[in-house]
Design a protein around this nucleic acid. Structure first.
Lengths: 219, 219
DNA sequence: CTTTTTCATGATAATCCCATGACATAAATG
DNA sequence: CATTTATGTCATGGGATTATCATGAAAAAG
């Protein structure tokens, strides 16, 4: 699946700039506008990388790093700071930041570091049964042949992978694949289940009557 | 072609050891014994990789990195340092070094990193299907015949190569090929897809309805 | 300046995803 | 077993998305 990046930054302009740039690179972006919120999202959304501003209201970046690391959350953190003092850098790194970049920074430089960090921590292939699904390219492969997927099928498979082995209701599926505002019927989900089953096999999508479906990985 | 590696290192013993080891691996080695000389050779000899010591007389490694990057020279740099402090690493990377290795290091580890770096940056020819595209000269060749490309087509192909096998949206394509300030319509992208398809074949540019396009390499 | 090539736009045709509903089948309930 | 409820399967058409072409402006080449 697309890598999820949490941007913690109080300046709205920088936030939006970062969001747009990162999304154009194909990342999924979560946003937080202060440290407290940032720490909360970091805990709940389980991002693959955190881009963290140091100077923020309520809770500054150092506290965020210190708190998260204290809780055993080891998501890579890339620190942004306007300060040029070296001690800031050192302090951030002592507390557990992985990398440091000074404002003003070029967006290219930031993207390069983001990519480098993610390459170290992200695994691209998700395997189940005799299938392998590349979360970066959305390619599904069985016995070295590619099985083509439509956009909805890709979203659905990603959704199931993120909830692997859990029972998910049709409502949850609709939420995750179509979005909150969708007004469609449950039958639509059934149809996509049907379609997916034809591609990945019935054994990987079991029905839990009255509750929903379960993506079975056998791993 | 043998890769050319520039070693910038003031300690003569380490220099000779590196030179010998690298040459045994089949690399061509240039030598510099201080930072100033190193920067000069980096500019004039156009090496494929620079191995750079940080602690040196006249001009230290940081200055060399900063100068070269400032001049737009983007040769990969592998930094050597005796210091164990993390801030050195951070500083080097911030200035634009690509990798970092601490003294004392095993020669094997160094060679492994050298090879890794070169594999990433040396590849001039990008091959897909029966095509080969030279990224330096922008020549596209199929069955030893050159296929001419317009400038936009070149940019687009380069963009697709950098995102090979990934699904890219029209927005991403517009960003990558035209730039962020472009106000054009999505239909323009379609037309260039059409043009590229006529040249490299439909099979290499598949559409993912609702999401965008994917450059397929089959490799 | 003229010719040629490249590029952007809009109109139109072709495509195909996917939402819907009808119906079949299976499971639960009593 | 009959009834009810939930799920599986299929066919189909609408409608959004994409393919293609023609056209003219703009830029580059001659």
């Amino acid at each position: 699946m697309k890598a999820k990046i949490l941007v913690v930054e109080d300046d709205k302009h920088i936030q939006m700039g970062l969001k747009k740039s990162l999304e154009l690179e194909g990342y999924h972006v979560e946003q937080a506008f202060d440290g407290e919120d940032g720490a909360y999202i970091a805990r709940t959304e389980n991002p693959d990388l955190i881009i963290l501003d140091i100077m923020m209201p309520f809770m500054n970046g150092f506290e965020v790093i210190s708190d998260l690391r204290g809780e055993g959350i080891d998501t890579p953190i890339l620190v942004l700071s306007a300060r040029t003092e070296t001690q800031d850098k050192v302090r951030g790194i002592r507390l557990g930041a992985d990398d440091y970049i000074e404002k003003p920074f070029s967006i290219d430089e930031l993207l390069a570091r983001v990519e480098r960090k993610l390459n170290l921590s992200m695994k691209e292939e998700f395997c189940f049964g005799s299938f392998s699904f590349n979360q970066k390219t959305s390619q599904l492969i069985k016995d070295s042949v590619e099985i083509s997927l439509s956009s909805k099928e890709i979203k659905m498979l990603n959704f199931f992978i993120s909830r692997k082995d859990q029972v998910v209701s049709r409502d949850q599926i609709i939420q995750g694949v179509w979005g909150h505002h969708y007004e469609g019927t449950d039958r639509t989900v059934d149809n996509f289940i049907l379609g997916l089953r034809k591609k990945i096999g019935k054994e990987h999508l079991s029905t839990v009557r009255g509750m929903g479906y379960r993506f079975v990985t056998n791993s």
